[in-house]
Computed example of a mutant assay.
Amino acid sequence: MAIISVVLRMSLCITLTMAQQPASTNSSVVWLYRPTFIYNLGSRCTSPLHHARRNQSTAVRDDYTYTPGIGAHKVHTDAANWYDAWLRCRLEGSNLSIINSEAEKNLIVELLSRAGPSHNGNLEGRAYMGFHSFFYPKVWITLEGQTLSQAGFNEWHDGEPSGGDNERCGSIFTSDGKLNDQECGRTTSFVCERHCC
């Protein structure tokens, strides 16, 4: 599992590096340049999943719930692992949600309750969020490179984080919105967020 994680991080870093290069006119190199697949991810290969809010699209989407002062959120109940959830949010011009306040936690719990359980998942009662400990064990950071305290919400469920090296992806308990560490390959619901309001 550790080897897969390293290979995934390396491939994301290489993709980011190539996406930041100008397009080549050499036809044998053009196939490497795919800026439409992964975009606006930042330039630091040490943390390729970071995402700057200023780069998100501000176009209004009908499938998001907009809340002034908090942002726009969309619950996906078609289950995915953490990596696929991250990618699906990115392809919508969003990111996995980062909880910045008690009010946002309460809003997300309400949205998850209205959406119902995940479909085809193997992990009920959880939803993936935009934080992880990929770079250092037990050092949890958001996709924007902040610690959870800096982001504004650091309320872990009792006994969490509990997984050590096996649980490096962030999720919440759908019942109360408290944080949980999770095996990245498990499939469950997830919440995307757009910063707009």
Score class of each variant (00 low, 15 high):
D158I: 12
Q182S: 03
A2C: 12
D63P: 05
I98K: 05
F37C: 04
H76S: 07
S113M: 07
N122K: 03
Y64L: 07
T36C: 06
T147S: 09
S113D: 04
A72L: 04
D62Y: 13
S94Q: 05
L148F: 04
A19E: 10
S97W: 09
N40W: 05
L123T: 06
P68A: 12
H51N: 09
V6H: 08
V29D: 06
E193R: 15
G71R: 02
T147F: 05
S133A: 11
D158C: 08
H50T: 14
P117A: 07
Y128P: 01
K74H: 08
I108W: 01
A23V: 15
V7D: 00
T142I: 06
M18P: 00
E183S: 12
T77D: 00
I3Y: 11
P117V: 10
S5M: 10
I99L: 08
H119P: 00
N55C: 09
H132R: 07
K105E: 07
R114K: 13
R53H: 11
A52H: 08
G42I: 09
D78Q: 15
V60N: 04
H157P: 00
M10P: 00
T77V: 08
T46K: 12
N180C: 07
K138S: 15
L12N: 06
F173H: 08
G130P: 01
M18Q: 08
N106M: 07
E144D: 11
A72W: 02
G170A: 06
G116S: 05
A80L: 13
E110R: 15
L112F: 02
M10N: 11
L111P: 00
E124V: 15
D181R: 07
D176Q: 03
L107C: 03
N95I: 15
K138I: 15
W156R: 04
I14R: 13
Y66F: 06
I3K: 12
L91V: 12
N120L: 15
A103Y: 06
H76L: 04
T15R: 15
H157F: 13
P22T: 14
V75L: 02
Y66G: 00
C197Q: 14
T36Y: 09
V191L: 02
F37A: 06
V139R: 10
Q21G: 02
L107K: 10
G170L: 08
N40T: 06
T147P: 02
N100F: 09
N120C: 10
Q20G: 12
G185T: 14
F153A: 01
L32G: 08
M10C: 09
I38R: 14
G152N: 02
V29F: 11
S189D: 01
S113C: 05
P161T: 03
I172T: 09
S162P: 06
A151K: 03
M10T: 10
C196F: 12
S175F: 13
A2F: 14
S27D: 02
N100G: 13
R126M: 09
P22Q: 09
L41A: 11
C196H: 14
N106S: 08
G170T: 02
D165E: 13
G71V: 03
I98L: 06
S189F: 05
I98D: 00
A85C: 05
E102Y: 13
